[in-house]
Amino acid sequence: MKVLHVNAGLENGGGLSHIVNLLTEAKQEGKDFELLTLAEGPVAQAAREHGIETHVLGANSRYDLASLKKLTRFINDGDYDIVHTHGARANLFLSLIHKKIKATWCITVHSDPYLDFAGRSLLGKIFTSLNIRALRRADCVFAVTECFARLLINKAQVDKNKVHVIYNGIVFHNDSEIPAKYEHTYFNIINVARTEKVKGQELLLKAVKQLNDQHIRLHIAGDGSQLEPLKALTRQLNMAPQVTFHGFMTHHQLSSLYKRIDLAVLTSYSESFPLVLLEATDNLIPILSTDVGDIHRMIPGPEYGFIAKVGDIDSIAKQVNLAVNKSNKELRQMAHAEKRYAEEHFSIKNQLDSILAVYRTF
């Protein structure tokens, strides 16, 4: 079975990790998976670094529809059995040529398609509509949570027989491979996410402010349209000494920072199945999330992590405070319990096996 995964190529966050982790596992298992990005960028670069066979279509812009003929020819000449797209732009390109290709077309929905272009006025509404239409046209749709599956079936009106729930996974490391934690003075919290409204970093800032605990330090690792507004809010709240904005960080940079982190937090308004929390878990860091997506599958009880209400500053503050007031021993026990649970349920091998099982039905 020959499979081509397609992505726009400019992804820098969880989508990049999802694609590269999946194709790396496939390569190690001897599967015939390749990657095509519409443009040169971080995804192609990361894939090459992992030894994944990678092609770049060379689209001249986000809207270079002239490259559709090239894409059609590439897929048909390559004799691929499955073409698997990730992201709205790749979905759009395949929706325009899917009747001209011989391969079966699958899509992975990584995020809420109704929120992907939120706040982008008329253009955002147009892209949302085009992406929903693409989801309906595909032969197969993978949803990374049960919540997304229900949304696709009930709201987007995707044929329920096409929708399959497959949770994200990562490569977990042996505890002995995890760098030892540094001794540090403060209770360090990290938020790894794009600085966009949907990620809710303003809620976290306000929650930490509410606690009025100078022992807490907050590290925000991410870039995006809300970075400067978030910095302005930090100044407005007189929190500058407590907050560090790192901008986008590579996995290597994050690994170094994780050595002195006590809690990893996501305060998003919407999420799928966040890989950044699995990666924190792998690094034996306790996790806290708002009640988004299928987070209860990742944090099945209070002994595994903390869950706050979506959009609720008081609830977020309460959960952060619970973490801050636990002993180091209690936090270590929680981190180990969550890692053992996550390793069993959310490995990249489990994810690949589930995807292959669906591929084989075509």
Rank of each mutant, 00 (worst) to 15 (best):
V3L: 08
N7T: 11
G13P: 12
G15C: 07
L16P: 03
S17C: 09
H18E: 10
H18C: 09
V20Q: 05
N21G: 08
L22H: 11
A26H: 06
K27Y: 07
G30M: 11
K31V: 03
D32A: 15
A44S: 15
Q45K: 15
A47I: 08
I52A: 10
H55M: 04
G58T: 07
Y63R: 12
S67Q: 11
K70F: 00
R73N: 13
F74N: 06
D77R: 12
G78M: 02
D79F: 00
H84L: 05
H86W: 08
R89S: 12
A90W: 10
L92H: 13
F93E: 13
L96K: 14
A103Y: 08
W105V: 15
V109L: 12
D112P: 01
K125C: 02
N131Q: 15
R133D: 14
R137C: 10
A138N: 11
A138Q: 11
A143W: 05
T145G: 08
T145Q: 05
E146Y: 03
E146N: 14
R150I: 00
K155P: 00
Q157I: 02
V158K: 02
H164L: 00
N168A: 07
G169P: 12
H173Q: 15
D175S: 14
I190E: 03
R194M: 09
K197D: 06
G200F: 02
Q201A: 07
L205I: 05
L211N: 05
L211K: 02
N212H: 10
D213H: 05
H215L: 03
H215C: 00
I216G: 02
I220R: 05
D223P: 00
L227A: 12
P229H: 09
K231W: 01
A232N: 13
L233W: 05
M239V: 04
P241A: 04
T244V: 12
H246M: 11
M249Q: 15
T250Y: 11
H252R: 14
H252T: 15
L254D: 11
S255R: 12
L257Y: 04
L266N: 07
T267G: 05
S270M: 04
P286E: 05
V292Q: 03
V292R: 01
G293Y: 04
G293F: 03
G305K: 10
I307P: 03
A308E: 04
K309P: 00
D314H: 10
D314R: 06
V320M: 07
L322D: 12
A323S: 14
K326F: 10
S327P: 06
R332E: 14
A335L: 10
E338W: 04
K339M: 11
K339R: 15
A342T: 12
A342Q: 09
A342L: 08
E344Q: 15
E344Y: 10
F346H: 08
F346C: 07
F346E: 07
L356W: 11
V358R: 09
Y359F: 13
F362C: 12
